[in-house]
Design a protein around this nucleic acid. Structure first.
Lengths: 197, 197
DNA sequence: TTCGTCATGTAATGGGTTACATGATTAC
DNA sequence: GTAATCATGTAACCCATTACATGACGAA
């Protein structure tokens, strides 16, 4: 059972619990607020995931505060263990298809605060080249086809292309910002080589 | 087995084959060009789908032209049967969640040429209200949360919202165009009530 | 007391991918 | 002749949903 869990949900759960301990129901709402424009999870996937994380020792039930009457336990609040934090760090460090594909990019981005600057940059660039590849594929495939498309198909094509182009521009801005920050930190380190991090 | 097939792929296949007969490999390329910006199908889903459509009598293998040497059959070209055309019409007529959700809207839109004006309008409006609902949910959930979000989360949120808003504006334009056309056809029918269609 | 929503969970199902296996055809 | 790509197909797996079952708790 260990290690066979899905990356997206696992990251989403561990990342959320790292910020503050939560119970399943609330966790789902939080995730669906965080990622609501892109995707939504259901209880049917969340609870089994929590169960798996629990048996793998990545999360534990948080003890209720003492002023709560004993024997009552309707909410089960989970928090990360040391192994859980380690695992989260591991997930946040890997930059690869699993971090820039459609289903996963949003989650990775949402936890960029906890991600190293270098990794952030590689994920953003990976996502951008993924999108550029997609545009290129469609464009060449379209060029090879001599059938002219009807107006609806054309409009769909145009809108899809425009959306992807917009995301690429967005990524470009983010990448520039990241690079500028990296340069700034670098020059600051150059000035005061004794400073921390 | 009959009737248990998935709607999205089924519509995609029937719709494509209606425009012209194709074999599986080419069909996939065509679909992935048509919908490449939104999604992509693999052989592992296409071939079983074709198989199912075949056994259900919605498609048949097209006889090769006589000038082809007999005994050779590397490509299997499929075309719609009468039942297939009927089924396609049925799929194109239904306006409901299955036609305006993320996974299916693109396919339905791509075949709007074969869809009645009234159904087109209902699908576009359905999609729009689906997106508006999504925005509303996220907004109210966000309003209930008092934790302030970090800049990355905020940026993701902003970008997601903007994307959805853009699609809504796009839909608004399409709906206006559709309505204008409907009005025009209507007034033309009023002028010449003996005309066809 | 009853209704809504909070809260946890499971079983069946769905819809798809990946990886694999196989072979024909084309271009060099 | 050999590499690339065209072409078909299957089995194992994955990830998540839907529908269901259960029950606590607060407000009307």
């Amino acid at each position: 059972m260990t290690g066979s869990r899905n990356g997206v949900l696992e990251l989403a759960v561990l990342g959320s619990l790292h910020e503050n301990p939560l119970h399943g129901y609330e966790l789902r709402k939080r995730l669906n607020t965080l990622l609501g424009m892109f995707r939504a999870f259901s209880y049917g996937s969340l609870y089994p995931c929590l169960k798996g994380l629990l048996t793998d020792g990545l999360i534990v039930e948080e003890e209720p505060p003492d002023d709560v009457v004993l024997g009552r336990r309707s909410k089960i609040v989970y928090k990360l263990t040391a192994e859980g934090k380690e695992r989260l760090q591991e997930l946040l460090t890997q930059a690869g298809p699993s971090s820039w594909e459609d289903e996963s990019f949003g989650i990775h981005f949402a936890f960029f605060r906890h991600t190293e600057a270098e990794v952030r940059l590689r994920i953003l660039e990976g996502r951008r080249s993924r999108l550029e590849e997609r545009m290129e594929n469609v464009r060449t495939a379209l060029a090879r086809t001599r059938e002219r498309l009807d107006s609806y198909t054309l409009e769909l094509q145009r809108h899809g292309l425009e959306s992807v182009e917009r995301e690429v521009r967005w990524l470009n801005e983010l990448i520039n910002t990241e690079r500028a920050q990296a340069d700034k930190s670098q020059s600051e380190r150059d000035k005061r080589p004794d400073s921390d991090e």
